[in-house]
Computed example of a mutant assay.
Amino acid sequence: MQTRIYRWCVSILLMSSLILGGCATSAQQSDTLDDSIAETQAQSPVPSESNQFSGLPYLEGEATVEMIVNGAPISILVRGLDAPITAGNFVDLANRGVYDGLVFHRVIRQPQPFVVQGGDPQGKDPNFPANQLGTGSFVDPATGQPRYIPLEITPANAQEPVYSQTLESAGITDQPPKLRHTRGAVAMARSNLPDSASAQFYFALADLEFLDGDYAVFGYVTEGMDVVDQIQQGDRITSARVTSGLNNLKLMD
């Protein structure tokens, strides 16, 4: 019983850190983002309903991305059928070389295994302050503007994703998402604004059921989880390449 109470308390603390990190101002970011899965931006990225998905990449099927870290490969199966926009965004960024050289700026293993997070484009600059990583987004060179994607979660018994809402806020409390936070899940980091994910992602180091329905899982590590387990804060992604399924990458009209 004491063990279960301890795990529940830890889960609540970790979830609270996610919420705190998302609403930080620029002056507070370095303090509040350290223990959260959060990606922060200066202004709300929420688009209007009429053009919410226009111009965004999406994945029509599956793809495989191979990420090299510390000289070893991590194979990620990207699930476009259940998270088409989230999966398409990740595959597009990998194909563009956006993740090459970026830092894993947040690794949390204590008091229990949690996440390894990276993908802040600001980390490409070796002189960028490490304590400010976790605040950056992908800037589309075609527009000069940050690209944000909607929160996208497909309930277990649904054919279509729920967009721009957590499952709880959408009133779906009787079923989990199709893509769950099991060990090896790969999901998008975001702030407390639902449509604020951009480039930052995280690996789940354990089953994290308390994140299900709040953050968008888009794939799973199929090989190389032992490599993920060895990642330390400050390690860099040598490269990320789409090894199959690139033909499934499309662009929203």
Results as ranks from 00 to 15, higher is better:
Glu152His: 11
Thr173His: 12
Val186Cys: 01
Val107Leu: 09
Ala170Tyr: 09
Leu14Glu: 12
Thr238His: 09
Asn248Val: 03
Pro45Ala: 01
Lys124Met: 11
Ile76Arg: 04
Arg180Ser: 03
Glu209Trp: 10
His105Met: 03
Gln41Met: 10
Tyr58Lys: 12
Leu18Arg: 08
Asn51Lys: 15
Met15Arg: 13
Leu205Asn: 00
Leu249Asp: 00
Ala189Gln: 03
Asp35Met: 10
Thr3Asp: 15
Val78Ile: 15
Ile149Thr: 00
Ala38Lys: 05
Ser26Gly: 10
Ser48Trp: 14
Asn192Glu: 13
Ala185Cys: 14
Phe210Lys: 06
Pro155Ile: 02
Pro113Tyr: 02
Val65Gly: 02
Arg183Glu: 10
Glu168Lys: 14
Gln41Leu: 13
Ala130Thr: 05
Asp195Ile: 13
Asp31Lys: 06
Leu102Trp: 07
Phe114Trp: 14
Thr40Cys: 15
Asp125Gln: 15
Thr222Pro: 08
Ile149His: 03
Phe90Thr: 00
Gln165Ser: 07
Val139Glu: 01
Val78Met: 05
Tyr148Val: 00
Glu39His: 04
Asp92Leu: 01
Cys9Gln: 11
Leu208Ile: 08
Phe210Met: 08
Leu251Asp: 13
Cys23Ile: 08
Ile19Asn: 11
Glu168Phe: 12
Ala130Val: 07
Gly134Gln: 01
Ile37Val: 14
Thr154Ser: 04
Asn157Met: 05
Asn127Arg: 07
Gln52Gly: 12
Phe128Gln: 02
Leu18Phe: 14
Glu39Ile: 08
Thr238Ser: 09
Leu18Gln: 14
Ile5Arg: 13
Tyr6His: 13
Leu56Pro: 09
Ile172Asp: 08
Phe114Gln: 07
Asp226Gln: 03
Ile149Lys: 03
Leu193Gly: 10
Ala94Tyr: 05
Arg79His: 11
Ala27Gly: 06
Ala38Glu: 04
Ser191Thr: 12
Gly184Ile: 03
Gln145Pro: 08
Phe128Ile: 02
Ser11Tyr: 13
Glu168Ser: 14
Pro121Cys: 05
Leu251Ala: 12
Pro129Cys: 05
Gly234Ser: 04
Ser36Cys: 09
Met188Pro: 01
Leu249Glu: 09
Thr166Arg: 07
Ser54Glu: 15
Asp120Lys: 01
Thr64Gly: 03
Gly184Lys: 02
Ala24Gln: 07
